[in-house]
Design a protein around this nucleic acid. Structure first.
Lengths: 236, 236
DNA sequence: AAGTGGTCTAGACCACAGT
DNA sequence: CTGTGGTCTAGACCACTTC
C-alpha cells in the first residue's frame, strides 16, 4: 500500500465523477459518510476533497455539502467562452474530427524542442484533430504522445472519442496539469482553410505540455485557435 | 478572534516574505518551529503553508524544508518566456512606463461589460502603462480600479512602481487570483505604434479580472501583447 | 434541531534529505 | 544518525444551511 489513502479516495471519487455516478450539480456524500466508506478520518477525507476542489472537480459550501462542478473539470485552463453565452469545451461537448492518425511518427517539428528535455529519436503517437463548437471550427490541434507503455493504443478507437478519458480508463494515466506557451500569429494557409478564416488572420497558438500521473510521461499539443467568435478563458 | 489561526499564520509569513525578512531562495523555519512560534499544531501550520504553496509564495521538499520561491509569486499565470532564456515578468523586473494616469475615469470601454456584474456608473482609477522587457515593448495595458476604499490613491505615487505591492502594503488588499479571456487580434494603429510592430500584426489580447482579498473588490485590465519575441506562458 | 463543512488539537509513524 | 516534511488518527468545538 504505497499509495496514500487520500490519493486513493481522491482517485475513487474522481472516477465516480467522470463516469457520471456522481452527477453534475449533485451532492457528494458528506465527509462523515465518506469517512465510514473509506474507513478514514475526516482530515484524510478532507485532504482528498480539497485536492478535488483544487483540480476543479467539485466546489464546497459550508452548511451544505460538496457539489460536483458543472461542465466538468477544465484542466486548470481552457474553456471556451462564447459570444453571449458560455460554451464549455471538453472532449464530451462539441465535435471533434480526427483528420489524421492515430499513427506513429517521429517528432520532426522543432517548435516543441524547448518543452522537451530528453526524448529525441523516439516514435510518437500522432493525431491531427479539428474541434468545432456549434459547428464552427475553433481549434486545430496536433498531438504527440510518447509511444511508451501504451500497448494497442493505435489499434483501438478512443473511448467516447476522448483521449484523456481513454488514457485514464485503459491505462490508468491521469492528466493532471499542463504548461503552455501562448502566442498570437498569422494563420498559414492550411490552418486558415481548416478554421475557415482568411490566410494571415490572427490566430492564437498554444504550445502545450501535459503532465500526467506517470512520472516522466508527458503529452504534447500544438493548437491553433480561431478566437473571432470564441475567446479562450483561464482561471487563477 | 474571528480570523482563523491558519489565515493569521499565512498572512504573517506572507508579509515576512514580501518584505524580504525571509529571503528568496532561503528556507522558512521548520513546521515544528512555526508551531511553537504561533502556538499551534502541525496540522494548522501545514494548512497555512499549503495555502502559501497554492499561491506560489513557497515550494516544499520532503526531507528539506520550505523554500521561498524565487522571482516571487507569478499570480498563478503570466510569465514571459524568452527566445532562448527565461525572463520573468513582474512589477519588479523589466521596465514599466506610465503613459497616462492615475486619473479618475468612467469605464466607457464596453469590452469589460461581460466581466462586470453590478458596478456601472462609478468612477474608476485608470492607468495606461507600457511594459518593456530588455528594452522591447511587449505589453500595453489599460487598468481600471474601482474608486472605493482607496483614499489618496491618485495623489501618492506607487510603492516601488508596483500596483499590487501598493495595494498590499498601503491598503492591505492582496490580489489573489484572476480570470481572463485570451484572443488573437490584429493590432490597431495606437497599439502597433507603441509595441513597435506593423499595424494589423497579430497581437495577444488579454481581458483580465483580478480577485482580491476584499470581498467584491476587483481590478480590471485590458492588455495587448507583442508575442513575436516573447510568448506568454502559463501553468496548471 | 440536525446535519454539514471549517477549524483545531495532541499525538503517531513514515519517508526523505543531509550529516 | 537527526531533522524535515508527508500522512494519518480520534477526537473536539464552531459556523453555516436546511428543515
Amino acid at each position: 500500500m504505497k499509495i496514500p489513502l487520500y490519493r486513493q479516495i481522491q482517485a475513487s471519487l474522481k472516477e465516480k465523477i467522470t463516469s457520471g455516478i456522481y452527477e453534475e450539480g449533485g451532492l457528494l456524500p458528506s465527509e462523515n459518510d465518506l469517512c465510514t466508506e473509506f474507513n478514514a478520518t475526516r482530515m484524510t477525507v478532507r485532504q482528498a476533497l480539497n485536492e478535488l476542489v483544487r483540480e476543479g472537480y467539485i466546489t464546497r459550501q459550508h452548511g451544505k455539502g460538496s457539489t460536483v462542478s458543472a461542465s466538468r473539470k477544465s484542466l486548470g485552463l481552457l474553456s471556451l467562452k462564447g459570444w453571449t453565452e458560455v460554451v464549455v469545451a471538453s472532449d464530451r461537448h462539441g465535435k471533434t474530427l480526427v483528420l489524421e492518425g492515430p499513427m506513429l511518427k517521429k517528432m520532426q517539428n522543432p517548435i516543441f524542442r524547448p518543452l522537451i528535455d530528453t526524448e529525441s529519436d523516439e516514435d510518437f503517437i500522432f493525431f491531427k484533430r479539428l474541434r468545432l463548437v456549434e459547428d464552427l471550427p475553433v481549434m486545430y490541434e496536433h498531438t504527440y504522445i510518447p509511444n511508451d507503455n501504451l500497448p494497442n493504443f493505435i489499434e483501438e478507437p478512443l473511448l467516447e472519442g476522448s483521449l484523456f478519458r481513454t488514457l485514464l480508463i485503459r491505462y490508468q494515466i491521469d492528466v493532471q496539469s499542463m504548461t503552455q506557451e501562448v502566442r498570437a500569429i498569422a494563420a498559414d494557409k492550411e490552418t486558415a482553410n481548416l478554421l475557415k478564416i482568411k490566410t494571415k488572420s490572427p490566430v492564437l497558438h498554444l504550445l502545450r505540455k501535459y503532465k500526467t500521473s506517470v512520472e516522466g510521461f508527458f503529452l504534447y499539443s500544438s493548437i491553433y485557435c480561431n478566437t473571432e467568435k470564441f475567446a479562450i478563458s483561464s482561471f487563477n
